[in-house]
């Protein structure tokens, strides 16, 4: 296999390392979405769950794991910096406002986790709950805007961002923002169906139904819109014989929808709705990959253009190959230690 970058023909290591790394980077982003999505979703559900006891239970389901979840985002940023520095150096200035909004929102929401239990008055608690909700909402929305801003393409000349201050703000990126907010809220509701019981669980089943419908509608809208943004996106989906490989994606989304609704309507099913919602996220992410590949900064920069030299990528690969599986193993262990339904008697602060 070979590819062109800066007019050079790439073969061997220079070809495969970026391919491998784009897989690892995609996995990191997916891990972040899967793990932090329900954390943020729980913050979003503060909009409809008011009772202090319920809010405490909701936060306690994620209290021991949230900061581990957030480190996937830091890993995503740091590995992009080391492995695809040109992408890091063009995407971040282009999406500067959405990135800054996201990190500021994550600050608010992160400290609200710790501070809401330590506030000494009802009023203090109220404001930290507002910060928790507002931070979750802005972070999710900004992540959607960032995603939309990237997919719709970034103007680059000579490996530097060449667009304007507001380029990221379009109807498409706004739609992506709404999509991520609704999708994360769905993950949060489905997570709570798994981790809680009683009236809270029953209400979350109800939330999950509504949010599930909205999420599906938004998935359809974004999926129909995306191929019209760049010529090659369309070709990636409808060109023969590739269509044979990509057509299962929408079919699987529909199949999961059936399992999702049946799971929600049965009292003895707890984890299935969450798995289905995560499945949707996985499929959307795969669909996105099909659209943009092999571009890391559409429309012009491929993964090979953006890559650091093989010496950098290989150096980091050694560590990643050992450490990412280790990290996954004890992430699973952490979830195992803190497994089970959370009631009002369980407290982690």
């Amino acid at each position: 296999m070979m590819a062109l970058s800066h007019g050079h023909l790439l073969t061997g290591q220079a070809y495969w390392l970026p391919v491998l790394w784009s897989g690892i980077a995609a996995f990191t982003i997916l891990a972040y979405i899967v793990l932090d999505g329900f954390d943020l979703g729980i913050g979003l559900l503060f909009a409809v769950e008011y009772r202090p006891d319920d809010r405490n239970v909701m936060v306690n389901t994620v209290a021991p794991v949230w900061d581990g979840n957030e480190t996937w985002l830091i890993l995503g940023g740091a590995s992009l910096y080391g492995v695809f520095p040109v992408a890091y150096a063009t995407v971040l200035p282009a999406l500067y406002p959405t990135i800054i909004a996201m990190v500021l929102a994550l600050i608010f929401r992160g400290v609200a986790f710790e501070f809401r239990f330590r506030a000494d008055s009802k009023r203090g608690r109220f404001w930290w709950d507002v910060a928790f909700f507002g931070g979750s909402l802005l972070a999710a929305f900004a992540q959607g805007l960032t995603l939309g801003g990237l997919i719709q393409g970034i103007k680059v000349t000579d490996d530097a961002y060449a667009g304007g201050w507001w380029d990221w703000l379009t109807p498409f990126s706004l739609l992506c923002g709404v999509g991520v907010v609704i999708g994360y809220a769905l993950l949060g509701a489905a997570w709570l169906v798994w981790r809680t019981d009683g009236p809270l669980q029953a209400r979350c089943r109800h939330h999950a139904r509504t949010l599930g419908l909205c999420t599906l509608a938004l998935i359809v809208a974004v999926s129909l819109w995306t191929p019209t943004l760049q010529g090659h996106y369309l070709r990636h989906w409808y060109a023969w014989p590739r269509i044979l490989f990509v057509s299962p994606v929408p079919v699987l989304v529909a199949g999961l929808a059936v399992v999702f609704w049946r799971g929600l309507s049965r009292e003895d099913v707890h984890i299935t709705p969450l798995l289905c919602a995560l499945g949707w996220f996985f499929l959307c992410f795969t669909g996105l990959g099909i659209s943009v590949w092999p571009y890391i900064v559409p429309p012009g920069i491929t993964i090979w253009d953006a890559s650091s030299p093989p010496s950098s990528q290989y150096f980091l690969l050694v560590g990643a190959a050992v450490l990412i599986p280790t990290i996954l193993a004890y992430t699973i262990y952490s979830y195992w230690v803190f497994r089970g339904k959370i009631g009002v008697e369980t407290h982690y602060h």
Partner: peptide, 9 residues
């Protein structure tokens, strides 16, 4: 980035 990025990662 090729030098500092991997260390931060």
């Amino acid at each position: 980035g090729p030098v500092l990025g991997p260390m931060l990662a």
